[in-house]
Simulated assay, not measured.
Amino acid sequence: MPRTTYYFRAYATNATTTGYGEILNFSTTQPDTVPGSPTGVSAVAGNQQATVSFSAPASDGGSTILYYTASSSPGHIAGYGSGSPITVTGLTNEVAYTFTVTATNAIGTSTPSTASNEVTPNTTDPPTVTTSATVDPIGQLSATLNGDITATGGQNATQHGFAYGTSATLVTVIATTTGGAFSGTGAFTSSSARSISSLSCGTTYYYRAYASNDYGTGYGTIQNFETLACAESVPTVIVLAYDTVTQTSANLLTFT
């Protein structure tokens, strides 16, 4: 068998006895080959990168493994290392990737491993949000606000809306609207996020947009608007009595 050590000794026999020589040994050889494929490949995403872990192949092909290569699909973006794990950089955030790993010795490179799990690199930031100065319509007791998510931060928003109140710094708020999850970027469209009510007429309100994901909450700048003025009340005149009635006049007793 290849790569096996064998032991031997000579002997000779005559009519009287058998004689033996010294025990010696030798080992068979086998031409070196490329290594086997690495196994157990898995990946964890980061910001524009992924960390790829794996197990060494069962066989190095008879020649020491010089390095490993982790390659992405799509893109064939590669990272190199002498062992596990290998970090592959230069990936595009919000693009899904899988990875294979090869082993290289002096003879050549192994066939690729089975592909890893799929991962999507992303940043670890909350969404970027803009608060619009446009409030339309504005009523005496209600208003419709506007805002945008301009960057997801690497993950879609799980909640969005507005915080509003009468404090110019919004250190305290009257309420916070909740529009729910928001996919990608763009203007807020949910009425539950944009519409506020139970306001007071002729009052200045301050507001700012927000959006949250697993990495935190992003806020827009604080803007303000004023609700429409309160309607003027009309006095009520009540005639209580009258006297001194003539053909052309009367004296009325009134109360306002």
Rank of each mutant, 00 (worst) to 15 (best):
G19L: 14
G19P: 01
Y20I: 09
I23C: 01
I23W: 10
I23N: 14
L24G: 06
N25C: 04
N25M: 13
F26L: 13
S27P: 00
T29R: 12
T29F: 05
Q30C: 00
P31Y: 00
P31M: 02
D32F: 01
P35G: 03
P35Q: 07
P35C: 11
G36K: 01
G36Q: 02
S37P: 06
P38C: 07
P38F: 03
S42K: 14
A43Y: 02
A43M: 09
V44T: 15
Q48V: 06
Q48Y: 09
Q49K: 14
A50R: 00
A50V: 09
T51G: 00
T51Q: 10
S53M: 02
S53E: 06
F54W: 05
S55L: 14
P57F: 04
A58W: 02
D60R: 11
D60Y: 06
G61A: 04
S63C: 08
T64L: 12
T64R: 11
I65W: 04
Y68K: 03
A70P: 01
A70I: 04
S71F: 00
S71N: 06
S71K: 15
S72I: 07
S72D: 04
S72A: 13
S72N: 12
S73R: 06
S73V: 11
S73Q: 11
G75D: 09
I77R: 08
I77W: 10
A78P: 00
A78F: 00
G79E: 06
G79D: 03
G83A: 09
G83T: 13
S84R: 04
P85Q: 12
I86C: 03
T87C: 08
V88C: 04
T89C: 01
T89R: 14
T89G: 12
G90C: 13
G90I: 04
L91H: 01
L91K: 10
T92V: 15
N93V: 07
E94L: 15
V95N: 05
V95Q: 15
A96E: 14
A96R: 14
Y97Q: 06
Y97A: 05
Y97M: 05
F99N: 10
T100R: 12
T100M: 10
T100E: 11
V101K: 03
A103H: 07
A103Q: 08
A103S: 07
A103R: 01
A103N: 03
